[in-house]
Computed example of a mutant assay.
Amino acid sequence: MFDIRPYIKPLAIAAAVVLVWGGGFYSGQHVAATAATVRLQSVQLTHEQERSRIATAKADELAAALADQQRLADHANKLGWRLLQTQGQLVQSQAQLRERIADATRNDGQAWTGLGPDGLRVYRAALGYTESGVSAADAGDAAKAGQTTAPSTGIPPADLIAHAVDYGRWCQELEAKFDAHAALQGGH
Results as ranks from 00 to 15, higher is better:
Y123T: 06
G23E: 05
D3H: 10
I4F: 10
G186A: 14
A183N: 05
L62P: 01
Q89E: 15
S42T: 12
L66Q: 14
R106A: 12
A126D: 07
E175M: 03
A158V: 03
D159K: 06
Q69F: 07
A65W: 10
V18W: 08
Y167Q: 11
G88P: 06
V31E: 13
E99S: 13
H47S: 09
R71W: 12
S52Y: 10
S93K: 10
S27V: 05
A136L: 14
V122E: 05
G119V: 05
Q85S: 13
H188T: 10
D159N: 05
A76S: 07
D3K: 10
A142Q: 12
T149V: 10
D103Q: 13
A76I: 04
V20N: 00
N77D: 10
T149Q: 13
Q41S: 07
R121N: 02
S27H: 08
Q147E: 15
F25H: 08
S93H: 11
T148L: 10
D60T: 01
L120H: 03
S152K: 09
A67D: 13
L79Q: 12
S132A: 12
L127H: 15
G28I: 08
Y123M: 01
D68Q: 13
L79H: 04
A12K: 01
G187M: 00
E99C: 04
L66F: 03
K177R: 11
W170Y: 08
Q185K: 06
G22L: 05
G140S: 01
I101A: 06
T105F: 03
A125F: 05
Q92K: 08
F2Y: 01
S135V: 10
Q44S: 10
Q85M: 12
R106F: 09
Q185C: 03
A55W: 01
G146M: 07
K144G: 00
F2A: 04
P151R: 12
A63S: 13
A142M: 09
Y123W: 15
A63L: 08
G24Q: 00
A150R: 13
L79E: 08
K58M: 09
R106L: 09
A73C: 05
T153F: 12
G22I: 06
I161A: 01
R39M: 03
E50I: 09
T34H: 06
Q70G: 02
Q29S: 05
A63F: 03
I8F: 14
G186F: 02
V91Q: 15
G146E: 15
A145L: 14
T46A: 14
D68M: 05
V31D: 12
V122R: 03
A73G: 05
N107P: 00
S42I: 00
H75W: 00
T148I: 03
P151W: 01
A12I: 08
G114A: 07
A162D: 13
P10K: 02
P151Q: 06
D108Q: 04
